[in-house]
């Protein structure tokens, strides 16, 4: 396997940080070697320096995309850590529906939800399934906009396709939910069109400005800021605050904290889960 020198490690981690926001400290040489080494070899690069130079020179950005796909962690599963989805079902959605219901029964209730690091789509589909189960039969009174974004092209592609192999499916998904919302597709499972049509996925680098996204009622930003530096986390959560409705809800990963990172948010507890709202 191609070895990385101390000097190359600095250059490559700086480059990865520039293109993705992902921060890799000096202890991550093994990760770079195993994940980026094969790409270097395939492109005929004799060193990581050569890979870096080639990626920077590539005006099509194809190499950059491949490096992001390789280095980003797509660890996810359906209903990962069940508590945010219970929170959504029993607290946030009922509250929001009360707040957003228009005076005229003929008008629809608009609710916008953003899964900001959607990986291969499991989180956003879990949100969609939760909504469908809560509002079964009355969905025509609502206009839900569910957006999933991720930095990895291939993750966005898989999410949009909504097809999962049996290992991805078996993790976290109860059998009953599986049979209700998926159809067997050879050896894989495909999310049903009624769920698929509720969501949209697109590529987004959280380090760049969020132009054209508008304001969301609920933002999920779980287990992504952990890969960023403290400084980048501060920037990210400040931007998320600006993209969240004043009475909106922010949900972060169960082991994450905003203390000392973003004073704009206050933590609130509901049963075993925590969510954040903007300080008024």
């Amino acid at each position: 396997m191609l070895k990385i020198t101390a000097d190359e490690l600095k250059t490559i981690s700086q480059y990865i940080h520039d293109i993705s926001g992902i921060y890799l400290d000096q202890s991550k040489s093994y990760l770079l070697e195993t994940r980026l080494g094969p790409i270097a070899e395939e492109l005929g690069c004799a060193s990581f320096r050569a890979l870096h130079d080639k990626a920077k020179r590539d005006s099509t950005k194809n190499i950059e995309r491949r490096l992001i796909d390789a280095i980003s962690t797509n660890e996810t599963l359906f209903f990962r850590d069940n508590s945010p989805f219970e929170l959504l079902k029993h607290k946030i959605l009922p509250e929001l529906i009360d707040l957003r219901s228009p005076a005229s029964p003929r008008m629809k209730t608009h609710i916008k939800i953003w899964s900001s690091a959607s990986s291969t789509g499991q989180e956003l589909y879990s949100i969609a399934m939760t909504i469908r189960e809560l509002l079964d039969g009355q969905l025509d009174r609502f206009n839900f906009k569910l957006l999933g974004t991720d930095i990895s092209d291939s993750a966005v592609k898989q999410a949009s396709y909504g097809k999962y192999n049996k290992f991805e499916i078996e993790r976290g998904l109860p059998r009953q939910t599986l049979q209700k919302h998926f159809t067997l597709f050879g050896d894989s499972w495909k999310i049903k069109d009624e769920i698929r049509s509720m969501v949209n996925f697109r590529k987004l680098n959280l380090m760049l400005p969020f132009t054209g996204l508008g304001k969301f009622d609920i933002i999920f930003c779980r287990n992504v800021a952990i890969y960023f530096t403290l400084q980048d986390r501060k920037k990210l959560f400040n931007k998320l605050a600006a993209s969240l409705a004043d009475d909106g809800y922010l949900i972060i990963g169960s082991t994450e904290s905003l203390t000392g990172i973003c004073p704009l948010f206050v933590p609130k507890r509901h049963l075993r889960a925590i969510f954040y709202q903007k300080k008024n």
Partner: peptide, 28 residues
């Protein structure tokens, strides 16, 4: 591994959530 991660994550999550609430109250 997933099982081990889940246990670690939920224990850590509980501790962090308590700290987060306490920090929030102190800030208030």
């Amino acid at each position: 591994l997933r099982q081990a991660m889940d246990v670690t994550e939920s224990t850590a999550g509980e501790t962090i959530q308590n700290l987060e609430i306490t920090a929030g109250e102190l800030q208030e």
